[in-house]
């Protein structure tokens, strides 16, 4: 059977493989290569070795912005991971009690997740700026108002998504365990501490890492809500890379090198998650 299927390679494998090479593999490999070059287009390049990687962190117009973007993104990620997961978990706890209207509430909370980042950001930009104008401010008056603006938009968008995952996790907890704990006289906090949270560990891992990578890779909301203002001080990493690449002539190489670093960071997060998940499966 395997032999017969094998003959159909041109039909079953080839279209996907060709598109995969065009849409991913070749751009990726060539992107890694170009990060070691000074270039303006893909055909006009000059090998410069590690220059781009050194330039990224050495003195220059861009380095302060980049270092700022690095810790601004880290802080943003930590804050959104905490807020999204805690609120989503709390909502999920209530929506698994079997109260009337559960389905309707779930529908409402999940809705923002389906709307794209650009569209959502303009909804919030209108709200933020119309409130802030009473104080003669805008959302991009300071890097910190921009920061919390982004936190609100992203939390609003993702809490519903994580809530869905938490609800599924909570519903998977066997009823006997809850009954047994109740019979043993466990209080509400004890139940949470010793039954719900430990049994939800895999779900918590999934949601934490989803929000972690989402925070790190955030682009659309950043572009539409703040555009990096004021003075590129609300740029997250992804937007910083974009601006280096397309906003600064002669810096494309540095932009590509940043992109490689960015990829390594995201890959590291993914590998850590994988390790945690598999180690739990073994144990």
């Amino acid at each position: 059977m395997e032999k017969t299927i094998k003959k159909y390679f041109p039909l079953f494998m080839l279209p996907t493989a060709i598109a995969f090479v065009i849409g991913f593999l070749a751009p990726f490999a060539y992107g890694v290569f170009l990060s070691f070059c000074k270039f303006t287009t893909v055909t006009n390049w000059k090998w410069v070795g590690l220059d781009n990687y050194i330039k990224m962190f050495s003195k220059g117009a861009d380095v302060d912005v980049f270092v700022h973007a690095l810790w601004y993104t880290s802080l943003f990620t930590v804050v959104t991971v905490l807020i999204i997961n805690i609120v989503a978990f709390a909502i999920a706890m209530v929506l698994t009690k079997g109260i009337a209207g559960t389905n309707l509430f779930r529908t409402a909370f999940f809705l923002p997740n389906l709307i794209g980042g650009i569209v959502l950001s303009y909804v919030w930009l209108m709200l933020f700026n119309s409130v802030l104008q009473n104080y003669h401010l805008t959302i991009t008056s300071s890097p910190w108002s921009a920061f919390w603006g982004l936190v609100i938009v992203v939390s609003w968008q993702q809490i519903g998504y994580m809530m869905i995952i938490y609800i599924a996790g909570i519903q998977n907890i066997p009823g006997e365990m809850i009954e047994a704990a109740k019979i043993d006289g466990a209080g509400r906090w004890q139940m949470l501490r010793y039954i719900t949270v430990p049994l939800l560990a895999p779900t918590i891992t999934i949601c934490t890492f989803l929000t972690l990578t989402n925070g790190f890779k955030l682009f659309d909301q950043n572009l539409a809500l703040t555009g990096g203002s004021p003075n590129r001080m609300s740029e997250l990493l992804a937007l910083n890379i974009y601006q280096t690449m397309y906003g600064m002539t002669g810096w494309q190489g540095v932009g590509q090198a940043k992109a490689v670093l960015f990829f390594l960071l995201v890959a590291a997060i993914a590998l850590i998650q994988n390790k945690i998940s598999t180690s739990r499966e073994v144990a």
């Binding site: 751009p27 990726f28 992107g31 992804a238 690449m245 995201v266």
Partner: peptide
């Protein structure tokens, strides 16, 4: 490819 962010390949 699932773990590669779009910024990595956007230019090329």
């Amino acid at each position: 490819s699932m773990i590669v962010p779009f910024q990595m390949v956007m230019f090329t």
